[in-house]
């Protein structure tokens, strides 16, 4: 028992040391702070915010950061109604939203929205026209696209999704989406759904694309960070976090952190392009 205690103490010590030494600079402003930061909205943001929150709360246990999803629309509305402190949005808030709620969007990352299929699917490239056909429900079998003779299962997001609104505007060029589409609630859920469905197709934040899903190039351009960065891949968007009024207190500190070298490293590690 004694040995165990000693060991655990050691583990904690080592953990704290390693954390402190690596992040001490960027996390210094959080020292002595107290309070709760409620964050909700865009689901593409979650991995970055979660990692940042973990570091901040480890360095200073007096700070509590809660993270929920819901979609960009929800983030904007809830921060506007002062239900949460920071509303994440995967699209730029509209002038009207900014005006009504006195929102201050802060951009800390650039992302794209890529079409994804299951890794077992031989189809790896589509034209915009084919994409429109698939999502409208007029192309119904993978066979028509060079795949297996199985029906195409479309996965869609709900109306509050910023990822969806960007994809619909820039990827689908505002064409119709079939009502038969399955609806999932977040970028994470989209990825999981496509990873589990060999005949599914959906769209997900480029930062979320990993080995569990296969990216589909659109009109010959693959949805990669490089292509988003160079502007070759058209379905790109900024990642915003909004506060009601000028960011202050913990929210301002968090934004500063996301723009610091350490914060930007997290943004890049999670698959996005960081901004100064």
């Amino acid at each position: 028992m004694k040995k165990y205690k000693l060991l655990s103490l050691l583990v904690v010590l080592v953990l704290q040391l390693s954390v402190n030494s690596a992040w001490s600079g960027a996390l210094d402003p959080f020292a002595g702070q107290k309070g709760t930061l409620k964050i909700a909205g865009g689901t593409a943001h979650i991995p970055v915010i979660k990692e940042a929150a973990k570091l901040i709360m480890t360095a200073n246990p007096d700070i509590r950061i809660t993270i929920a999803g819901g979609g960009s629309g929800v983030g904007i509305k809830q921060v506007g109604e002062s239900i949460i402190d920071i509303g994440n949005s995967g699209r730029k808030p509209t002038e009207q939203e900014i005006g009504t709620y006195n929102l201050h969007p802060v951009k800390w990352g650039i992302d794209g929205v890529g079409v994804v299929v299951n890794p077992d699917n031989p189809v790896t490239a589509l034209s915009t026209q084919q994409l429109q056909g698939i999502f409208a429900g007029t192309i119904t079998s993978w066979k028509e696209l060079g795949g297996k003779d199985r029906s195409i299962n479309i996965y869609d997001r709900d109306a509050a999704s910023g990822t969806r609104s960007v994809f619909w505007k820039k990827g689908l060029k505002k064409s119709e989406v079939s009502k038969k589409a399955n609806v999932v609630v977040s970028n994470g859920a989209m990825k999981t759904a496509i990873a589990n469905d060999p005949y599914g197709i959906g769209f997900v934040s480029v930062g979320h694309i990993d080995a569990s899903v296969a990216p589909v190039s659109l009109d010959g351009v693959a949805p990669t960070l490089d292509n988003v960065k160079s502007g070759k891949y058209p379905v790109a968007r900024g990642l915003y976090s909004c506060t009601k009024g000028e960011p202050s207190g913990l929210a301002a500190l968090l934004f500063d952190f996301l723009h610091s070298p350490e914060g930007r490293k997290i943004v890049e590690e999670k698959g996005f392009i960081s901004v100064e």
Binding site: A40, I46, K50, A53, M57, R64, I65, T66, I67, A68
Partner: peptide, 9 residues
């Protein structure tokens, strides 16, 4: 309920 919050104080 949220996905990530820690223990409520």
């Amino acid at each position: 309920v949220v996905a990530s919050a820690g223990i409520p104080r």
